[in-house]
Design a protein around this nucleic acid. Structure first.
Lengths: 330, 330
DNA sequence: AAATATCAATTACATATGTAATCAAAACGT
DNA sequence: ACGTTTTGATTACATATGTAATTGATATTT
């Protein structure tokens, strides 16, 4: 009898829980309505609703392939101390990825511009950034400026840093400034000489003063435009790889910790230095594709960005690689 | 390209929806937090949450065998115009049903008593009512009264209407009054003569003045205590069945519409008349078991109760039977 | 190009919600 | 039987929510 009684007690407790949950989640009654219908007080109903959710009596499921992305965004933010992550489902057609990521970037920039906060926008280089600019809806806010954060390429005309910056500037009615020079000088000394010129001082200052910078990273394979058309022909990529390079940010090659590798090429780069990039409040890293997972991981571990725009598959891989790196280092 | 663009539009719309839903339902952020995190306004987030629920993006499920009961309660209330329905899962051990329903009744009565509203409580007869009384926690509120709403049985001592009423009265410290007579008089004339006596006038008035009445119904099978021990031995049950009786409320036999059947026995009943029962604000019908489904349906169709305490299986069957009855009648 | 229509963002407000503090009752031990 | 501890109900209040009205921006039509 005693056991029976306690069972009844529990049963009626669960009954109450189910009743409350039903009325609240299924019928949409207010907590007060439920309380008076069930002959209790509202605070209790409130507690019971919480209990119902915590105990798993109530299960809430999101029914979309996008759910996993949103969850991943949270994980990435926590793992890399990001302020924001935008993860899109990896498309079946890989060639559509740049366009998708670019669209996401354009949306973000539009959002930021509507808040009127960023006045100076820095742009890097790459297919994804190019696509972002293409997708920017044309509108004008007064007082905006766009600056390229890196020098241009001398070979291969597919995408040019000057074009990207000036196109964006035209679309949003902004002032525009570039590094009017090739990305790599012939030597470290040459670089310093160029940078000491007034126009470059100014370009560099403009870039460093950006409120937000949108940039991509490049990997070390032949798929990278930087590897194919940026790095001087007489410099074998293997040299960089031997120094631990796993990719570049603004033409500056970094290792798996995100630190610039010890190679002369880095000293020849005409671009916003990585150290100065850290002074920029918002750095949006927009890159995707499994081949870039390692550089993305490196850039994030090195805390070169506070915002990531990426595809799901690559982001997961990057998380994995980053864990390996920190496990070795730590 | 056009198709691609529109896909992107939809995609980003769904992305927003999923993002909002995720933050709200999974991470428990407030709508304002979500709005600012996603760069929109709160009203939009609010709308999106509604959309997410309506569109089926968010699925909320209650994970309990009791869920079906609570849903059924709502259906029963709407179908029969009940103020309240308490449906418990049908137990595997049928013999436990009366105890379970009794417990539910006791809980309800306790609840009502705590509200201090009902001062006069009427009780019928039956195993379920007996169990309810047994389960009542002993406590006292001043000014309560209990009255039996029907006469007693002369054969079979298992459960007595007097005992039920007086036991309940004792437990809650109430005054008590009965119909101190057998449930059936020898004739209609005899019944009228008895009822004209002062004590019975008083008992009847007490019963009719109840704030709440707890009663059960009986079916026409041998399982019914009323059939076995209440109906005079010289009266074949078949006579009542021929008149369309499908069971009794307080010894008064009703047809499938819930109307008293045209049989002399009904005129011999010493109990609160069904017409007077309709004057009682709260009539709690507590009965269960598949054999009683038909009477329960009849009683509900006849609107003799505003509260039902029943088991799931029986309640479903009663719903079904009631639909048949009203389909024929309408 | 001007005027209108349409849509979404902002504001505003009444209501609902979550939570802490107070209060009453019951259970427990002394 | 009295006081203590624990439990749950009530109150109170700051915050969050749902919704309607207003405003402003964009698109459409004449």
């Amino acid at each position: 009898m005693g056991a029976d009684d306690s069972n009844n007690e529990q049963d009626s407790e669960e009954q109450l829980l189910v009743r409350v949950a039903w009325h609240y989640f299924m019928e949409g009654l207010t907590q007060s309505e439920i309380a008076s219908a069930l002959g209790t007080n509202r605070p209790r109903v409130n507690r019971l609703i919480g209990e119902a959710r915590r105990s798993g009596l109530v299960t809430i499921t999101l029914n979309s392939h996008l759910t996993a992305c949103v969850e991943l965004e949270g994980i990435l933010c926590r793992r890399f101390g990001l302020d924001r992550a935008i993860i899109v489902p990896t498309p079946t057609k890989k060639e559509a990825l740049a366009e998708i990521l670019g669209g996401a970037g354009a949306e973000l920039l539009t959002q930021l511009l509507n808040l009127r906060t960023p006045q100076r926008i820095g742009v890097g280089w790459g297919q994804t950034v190019r696509e972002m600019v293409r997708k920017m809806p044309p509108f004008r806010h007064p007082g905006l400026s766009v600056s390229s954060v890196m020098g241009g390429l001398t070979r291969g005309i597919e995408i040019n840093t000057f074009d990207i910056a000036s196109d964006l500037a035209r679309r949003i009615g902004a002032e525009c400034s570039y590094f009017a020079a090739p990305i790599y000088a012939s030597s470290a000394e040459s670089r310093d000489a160029i940078m000491n010129q007034n126009v470059f001082q100014e370009a560099s200052a403009n870039a460093a003063a950006s409120d937000v910078v949108f940039l991509s990273v490049g990997d070390m394979t032949d798929r990278s435009l930087m590897v194919r058309n940026g790095v001087p022909r007489d410099l074998p990529i293997s040299e960089l790889i031997e120094q631990g390079a796993c990719g570049d940010i603004m033409g500056q090659f970094i290792d798996r910790q995100g630190k610039p590798v010890d190679h002369p090429l880095n000293a020849r780069t005409l671009a916003l230095p990585l150290a100065d990039l850290k002074g920029v409040k918002n750095v949006v890293l927009m890159s995707g594709g499994l081949n870039k997972a390692e550089v993305i991981a490196a850039a994030l571990v090195g805390k070169h960005a506070n915002t990531l725009i990426c595809d799901e598959e690559t982001a997961r891989k990057a998380l994995e690689l980053a864990d390996e790196v920190t496990a070795q280092a730590g």
